[in-house]
Design a protein around this nucleic acid. Structure first.
Lengths: 98, 98
DNA sequence: TTGCCGATTAGCATATCTGCTAATTAGCAG
DNA sequence: CTGCTAATTAGCAGATATGCTAATCGGCAA
């Protein structure tokens, strides 16, 4: 769950894709056009992001529209902040390590 | 590099190590004792975290003391928040505190 | 010096990740 | 149906990551 999110974020191309989606949803082909790698490679990165629930896909007739899942990204950021030591808070966000 | 940070965060064991360090510095052997994997495995995970600058090592005579590098963790969290779209703003993580 | 303990490095086997080309599916138009 | 475009899946080769045991290094104490 959480693990697949951080694994998905581990590849620069996938963070780049998320950055491309920052300003709004985009069509898969639209993304691929701005991307240096091959179409199938882009497609696989999108699949990894979708698996991690970092993006969602929506069919628009012939094409597929992708959009960022903001809340999952926020949760990941929170998990990281939760790893920063509060000298006492023993019980917060323990599952960040999972 | 930013990339090595996210790669380091991709493995659950390494996030677990960071969580163990949340409350303060710990000796390597201390960490290994609470860890399920073998000593050398722990050692390698520590090396990956150190490479990413997520932790620092300090020799204490015979042993080695590890501590979290909080600012790098904060930067990673910021980078994630920066991937969240503001529909208009072209600029990155300017109003992270909204 | 020798011996011991804490910790890392070497080396290996297995597994996963990456990116490509070729093949395939999905939907639309005629 | 055929043809066309959008996108994914299959399959392969090469690169990395993981975790183990065995060997090694570093510091300290007799």
């Amino acid at each position: 769950m959480e693990n697949s999110v951080f694994k998905a974020l581990a590849h620069p191309a996938r963070r780049q894709i998320l950055a491309m989606l920052r300003k709004g949803p985009r069509l898969a082909g639209d993304l691929a056009a701005e991307f240096e790698a091959s179409w199938p490679t882009m497609s696989r990165h999108l699949a990894v992001l979708k698996d991690a629930d970092l993006i969602t896909a929506e069919r628009q007739g012939n094409q597929i529209l992708y959009r960022v899942n903001t809340s999952v990204l926020e949760d990941a950021a929170s998990a990281l902040l939760g790893l920063i030591g509060r000298d006492e808070g023993d019980d917060e966000l323990k599952e960040a390590a999972e």
